[in-house]
């Protein structure tokens, strides 16, 4: 129930999944919101501080999540004899790999925006993630563009991923979504 099994996710993986989902969607909204705040808005500074601090913690969360994933049994596909079932399941895995990849691009680009001047990132006044300085020319501008476009790309893939889960649940009526909400008992 805690660990993953061949046909279902355990509680740890489920918590990792939904926690990342909510935090990442929240970070996307916060990111879009903060860049349009006016200079005199009380959130002008705090929104950015929050975004940076949470961002560093999300990076830690995702690394732990991946470690957990590889320390557990691989959850198998749900058997299906539908047409294109194989293709769909390959696309689903591709989307999952893409989401992890885009997340790491976001962590790296976000870090590069803020640290180009040698200043580290202060995480909730708990610790300082040190800067590596300016690694390449126009670092914060280039990293900023990458951060914006990759965030939109990630959220597009997330939307497809979520729609696919709903499709499995409501149209195919299989366990795909259920087993990511409550661990399924072995059959």
């Amino acid at each position: 129930m805690i660990r993953n099994s061949r046909n279902s996710y355990g509680w740890i993986a489920i918590v990792f999944h939904w926690l990342s989902a909510f935090v990442i969607l929240g970070m996307f909204a916060l990111g879009l919101y903060m860049v349009d705040l006016s200079y005199y808005d009380p959130w002008y500074r705090d929104a950015l501080t929050l975004h940076k601090s949470i961002g560093v913690l999300v990076a830690v969360l995702i690394i732990l999540r991946l470690i957990w994933k590889y320390c557990n049994a691989q959850v198998g596909e749900i058997e299906s004899h539908r047409k294109f079932a194989k293709l769909q399941s390959r696309l689903a895995s591709l989307a999952q790999v893409a989401m992890y990849l885009f997340l790491f691009v976001l962590f790296a680009s976000g870090y590069l925006i803020s640290t180009a001047d040698g200043r580290g990132i202060d995480v909730f006044n708990l610790f300082m993630l040190p800067s590596m300085g300016e690694i390449f020319d126009q670092q914060s501008d280039i990293a900023g563009l990458v951060h914006l476009y990759v965030a939109w790309t990630l959220i597009s893939v997330v939307s497809i991923h979520a729609l696919a889960a709903l499709y499995h649940h409501f149209i195919l009526k299989d366990l795909t979504l259920k087993r990511m909400c409550i661990p399924q008992t072995e059959k």
């Binding site: 640290t115 001047d117 200043r119 501008d141 900023g144």
Partner: peptide
Amino acid sequence: TGSIDSNHAERDKHLR
């Protein structure tokens, strides 16, 4: 204009 430098990467990005 891209060479503006106010000793703060985030601010300079905003200024550019």
